[in-house]
């Protein structure tokens, strides 16, 4: 069993970090994982994307054309990648920035206003954590408590922002559970 998740958005939206946190939690859960970034000029403010592969056996090709799920943080990402998602997968749409939808009937759309939820939780800077929490709640990839521990570990040097991110996480989970 192998699951592939593509995270895509503007540089600075926390794409690489969200993907890393998911990969890290999956590794701690005992899975084989690979975190494959796009790199190069697009790191300088353009669209960035990153793929996480989670598998119960040694990962062969880490190059994924058709991911299981997509987390689209901006409109170009949704337009570019929504058609590549395998049928039955989740397409996460950051509705704070994306006014359109995927136009696909064979996938599950998860539409979340992450900026508004993050702002209500304390700061829009935690929007990527809202997205990660909501997506994981829907996709059920890793234990949410384990993922929270990974977030705490990641921010251990900046302990004062941990409560904000925990709150954002819980709000993200709540939203996904109720929508």
């Amino acid at each position: 069993m192998q699951t592939e998740i593509k995270f895509a958005g503007f540089g600075g939206q926390g794409i690489l970090l969200s993907a890393k946190l998911l990969a890290y939690a999956a590794m701690k859960q005992g899975s084989f994982v690979a975190w494959v970034p796009s790199y190069g000029p697009e790191m300088r403010g353009g669209t960035a994307y990153c793929t996480v592969v989670i598998s119960d056996k040694l990962i062969g090709s880490p190059i994924i054309k058709n991911p299981t799920h997509l987390v689209a943080m901006n409109r170009p990402s949704l337009e570019k990648f929504s058609d590549t998602v395998k049928p039955g997968g989740i397409v996460f749409i950051n509705s704070s920035l994306i006014p359109v939808r995927s136009n696909r009937k064979d996938i599950i759309e998860l539409v979340v206003p992450i900026n508004e939820i993050a702002a209500a939780a304390g700061s829009v800077r935690a929007a990527n954590i809202v997205a990660l929490a909501a997506f994981n709640a829907k996709a059920k990839l890793v234990d949410p408590d384990l993922l929270k521990d990974c977030i705490k570990e990641e921010f251990s040097a900046k302990a004062k922002i941990i409560p904000l991110n925990m709150k954002a996480f819980d709000e993200g989970v709540n939203f996904a559970d109720n929508n």
């Binding site: 994982v33 790199y39 880490p62």
Partner: peptide, 10 residues
């Protein structure tokens, strides 16, 4: 190669 350099794995 660039993938091995840039990729994260356990």
């Amino acid at each position: 190669d660039g993938l091995i350099g840039q990729m994260m794995e356990p």
